[in-house]
Design a protein around this nucleic acid. Structure first.
Length: 509
RNA sequence: GCCGCGUUGGUCAAGGGGUUAAGACGCCUCCCUUUCACGGAGGAAUCACGGGUUCGAAUCCCGUACGUGGUACCA
């Protein structure tokens, strides 16, 4: 790889939701690009027309926007290396595939799907349950290696569907230095003759990545570890087509695992945690997979938790903002082993970020939750002070609703079980008299309220502590929330009196 | 089956020949708090196994086991 401007790319296939692991790959790309003053590109790998899913591409960009990981070049903001969708680059690939045929590193294959299946069945043994199209079998198939030149040309003239396959060399050692794994070695004899160009004229991933990474001048290529096994194919393609000195440096990132093996949508549904960045509804099955956004995560927290799932800076620091990540991220501290995703820890990150951010930054998303529940916020400064008051009690954004909705509306149910067992006629009388005292109170202010409350309690010879919990349940509905007199002050005199008398009816029923 | 990559508490992890093997999440106990949280103090729990190399191995080497990915005209 020559010395040149850093260019990295995230290359998603628009076939569905954007997975946790996908976002982390984007993130590492982004951090690396920003740190190295490079360019971050998004290229859409839509070469499989049978897997085209409408809406998936828009969805991906929506997720990136929410995460704050916007690319410098993409189909939406093209740079000088477009088009940025592989489907729009289709004519390019044939040229390169034919170049490989000319150099005898690839060949035409005319086998039908049925013939391939037959081959696999014929050669299947106990030791080899999945025979490959490789040096053992290719001479028994229908391809330009066994057919005469004339016959090959004739079939092509006849519009016989064909694919172009790479011809893997025999017994060559292929190795490269991966930025996270170090030296990785393969024997070419063990790799099959992968299809490079499909019968519909579209390239497979293998051809497309190599061609596009070259044409787009990619210098560093990050991808999931599931690609490591096909690295030898890509390395050979680089060697045959463009020269190894132009090949990007590879970084194969460790997988993110679920509770039992690879993390899947199913795990999310089963264990009740999101696996996609944002909600995704499959347009065919209408199946909804939950997203971190809708679950109530802050993008800051989502980015933070993803960054440290497979990387750390070597210190005890766990909370990082984007700028710190850009400054501190380094590939040589990315782990080699997969990490199990722990939703409990993920929630902790969100809670930390809620505590960390000022109310002014929490306001917009929290407000949105209230609006959805039918509570319209008019007074932003007042709302901010309430957000500030309850944020220590919230781990996910919707918690703000349960923790603060009583500031805006009368509770619908009361935790009677917390009060009733210790309810007495004396307490009952206390609260009736409290209503009167509150009514007479000229200045509705925290300390004044507390004062009359305590004086009355002393007068009635009841410990204030005995009365505080019932009072709280009357105002809040349950035994939670900040200081009870503060709540009374905030909701105002008429509403406090209203809630006390409403609750009294219920406690006495 | 074959090939690749991995393996430090339940989970995320630091440590890369000599350490009482950090820290975080979660769990438990206590303190703070007339609620719930926040905060604070403590606790239980670990180097997959077997062989080497070495005065000494979590750390290096080799096996084994296990996990994981690949083995598609999917990415």
């Amino acid at each position: 790889m020559k010395d040149r401007k850093i260019r990295v790319r995230f290359a998603p296939s628009p076939t569905g939701g954007l997975h946790l692991g996908g976002v982390r790959t984007v993130l590492y790309n982004y951090l690396f690009a920003r740190q190295q003053q490079g360019t971050f590109i998004v290229r859409i790998e839509d070469t499989d027309q049978s897997r085209y899913v409408p809406g998936a591409e828009d969805y991906i960009f929506k997720c990136l926007a929410w995460c704050g990981l916007l690319p410098d070049e993409s189909p939406l903001h093209p740079g000088d290396y477009g088009p940025y969708r592989q489907s729009e680059r289709k004519p390019l690939y044939l040229t390169y595939a034919e170049q490989l045929i000319a150099s005898k590193n690839a060949y035409y294959a005319f086998d039908t799907a049925e013939e391939l299946e037959q081959m696999r069945n014929n050669f299947k043994t106990e030791e080899n349950p999945s025979p490959q199209y490789d040096r053992h079998t290719r001479m028994k198939m229908k391809n330009s290696l066994v057919l005469s030149e004339a016959e090959t040309q004739r079939l092509i003239q006849l519009n016989t569907p064909y694919v172009i396959r790479i011809k893997m060399p025999e017994n060559e050692t292929i190795s490269f230095t991966d930025m996270v794994h170090g030296e990785v070695t393969f024997n070419s004899s063990l790799v099959d003759d992968k299809v490079l160009l499909k019968a519909d004229g579209m390239p497979t991933y293998h051809l497309a990545v190599v061609v596009d990474d070259f044409l787009m001048k990619i210098t560093h290529a990050f991808r999931g570890e599931e690609w490591l096994s096909s690295a030898p194919v890509h390395i050979l393609l680089w060697k045959y087509l463009f020269g190894l000195e132009w090949m990007p440096q590879w970084a194969h990132l460790p997988l993110i695992l679920g509770p039992h093996g690879k993390l899947s949508k199913r795990d999310g549904a089963k264990y009740g945690f999101p696996v996609f960045a944002m909600n995704w509804t499959d347009p065919k099955t209408h199946e909804l997979t939950e997203g971190f956004y809708e679950k109530g995560f802050l993008p800051e927290a989502f980015i933070n938790l993803l960054a440290v799932l497979g990387w750390n800076d070597g210190t005890e620091q766990e909370l990082f903002n984007m700028n710190e990540l850009i400054a501190k991220f380094s590939l040589d501290r990315v782990h080699t082993s997969g990490a199990k995703f722990d939703f409990e820890k993920a929630k902790w990150f969100n809670q930390e970020w809620i505590k960390k951010l000022p109310a002014s930054q929490l306001r917009a998303p929290v407000k949105q939750i209230f609006e959805k529940k039918g509570i319209h916020i008019k007074d932003d400064p007042a709302f901010d002070s309430i957000v500030e008051l309850v944020k220590d009690r919230c781990t996910l954004l919707p918690d703000f609703y349960t923790q603060a909705s009583y500031f805006f509306k009368t509770p619908e149910h009361w935790d009677e079980a917390a009060v009733k067992p210790k309810w007495t006629v004396e307490k009952n009388r206390f609260f009736y008299e409290l209503i009167e005292k509150m009514n007479e109170l000229p200045h509705w202010e925290l300390h004044e309220i507390e004062n009359i409350f305590k004086l009355l309690a002393a007068e009635k010879n009841i410990k204030a502590g005995e009365l505080l919990l019932p009072f709280r349940v009357m105002l809040v509905g349950g035994k939670f929330g900040p200081a009870v007199f503060l709540i009374a002050e905030k909701i105002g005199k008429p509403e406090t009196i209203n809630r006390v008398s409403t609750a009294l009816n219920i406690f006495n029923a």
